[in-house]
């Protein structure tokens, strides 16, 4: 027992453990870099869950680094007792904050998740379903504020949201670098983008074909022919539309000047009028470790500075 205790308190062992962890992390970073397919979901799941669902020999470094940090955690705990006995207050807090960082990261590695790229259109109630059987987030984009620079870039993006928390209606603001916490989850604003509400295809001077996009309860029906919007290109000059005429289903790309055949009659698209509204794109993050990790790391920074002035 004394021998184990001696090893755990030995500075050289701690140094070599940290060097070994560094070595495996360096190796791991190259494995991550050259295997993007395997690791493309690692930033979206808790580490241990990710390891469970992505079993691969290439993940050996993650297991080894975890084992080394378990050793460092135990060693740090023994150092803590040693510091306490010797009344080294700042060194004690220094080691304690390191242990708290490890505990926080352990919590993160068990519970964290992130879901990406949810579009919330302006003025439309949106329910966002979450993984891990978590309660969905119900949110409504009330107002979108932004400035356009001379070069045409969006700046100072801010959004006013109305959301339900514990069945109570609340309001909050979200902007870049300022997430909004709803029911313990963080809504992270990524960008604003125009969102297509409907497209009007002008076929002849008086005939218009309006295809709704935002609330596609089902295909849009004109004279027995069903039209359903599928996708559009970036500048909204071409649209993929599913046309269902009786048993006949056809996916068509509609763009300006194109001839469209409806019920045997040919029409030319003379104008495309997309009706867009504002929307925001958000990520949703659940990370119960975040307060602890920032508290512990702040403590770590302070005690390292104090130790410098204390010991020189």
């Amino acid at each position: 027992m004394d021998k184990i205790k001696k090893i755990l308190l030995d500075i050289n062992y701690s140094f070599y453990a940290l060097v070994l962890a560094s070595f495996f992390c360096i190796l791991g970073s190259f494995i991550v870099y050259f295997n993007p397919k395997l690791y493309n979901t690692i930033d979206y799941k808790a580490l241990f869950k990710w390891l469970y669902y992505n079993q691969s020999i290439k993940n050996f470094w993650l297991y080894l680094v975890t084992i080394i940090f378990v050793y460092l955690g135990i060693s740090g705990f023994y150092c803590l007792i040693y510091d306490f006995k010797r009344k080294n207050i700042f060194t004690l807090i220094f080691h304690l904050s390191f242990l708290l960082i490890l505990v926080a990261h352990l919590i993160n590695s068990i519970y964290f998740y992130k879901v990406s790229d949810y579009i919330i259109p302006e003025g439309v109630p949106k329910t966002i379903n979450l993984p891990e059987s978590d309660k969905p987030i119900r949110v409504f984009l009330d107002k979108l504020n932004y400035d356009i620079t001379n070069e045409g870039f969006i700046k100072n993006l801010k959004a006013d949201l109305i959301y339900l928390e514990k069945d109570e209606q609340k309001s909050g603001k979200i902007s870049i670098n300022n997430p909004l916490k709803i029911e313990g989850k963080y809504l992270i604003l990524k960008q604003a983008s125009p969102f297509l509400r409907s497209i009007t295809f002008k076929l002849r001077s008086e005939e218009r074909l309006i295809i709704p996009v935002l609330t596609p309860e089902g295909p849009f029906n004109i004279d027995g022919v069903l039209f359903q919007f599928l996708a559009h290109n970036e500048d909204m000059s071409a649209f993929k539309v599913l046309v269902i005429d009786g048993d006949k289903k056809e996916t068509m790309i509609w763009s300006l000047g194109q001839n469209v055949n409806i019920k045997g009659q040919s029409y030319t698209i003379t104008q495309i009028i997309p009706d867009t509204i504002g929307s925001i794109v958000v990520d949703i993050v659940y990370d119960p470790s975040v307060y602890l990790i920032f508290f512990a790391s702040t403590l770590f920074v302070f005690t390292s500075v104090i130790r410098f002035f204390e010991k020189g």
Binding site: F30, Y39, N177, P179, D283, I293
Partner: peptide
């Protein structure tokens, strides 16, 4: 965390920064 929702990413730069 404020911009991306994570304080650490499993990218080359971030892993080396941790190293």
């Amino acid at each position: 965390f404020k911009a991306w929702g994570v304080y650490f990413l499993y990218g080359m730069k971030e892993i080396f920064s941790f190293v």
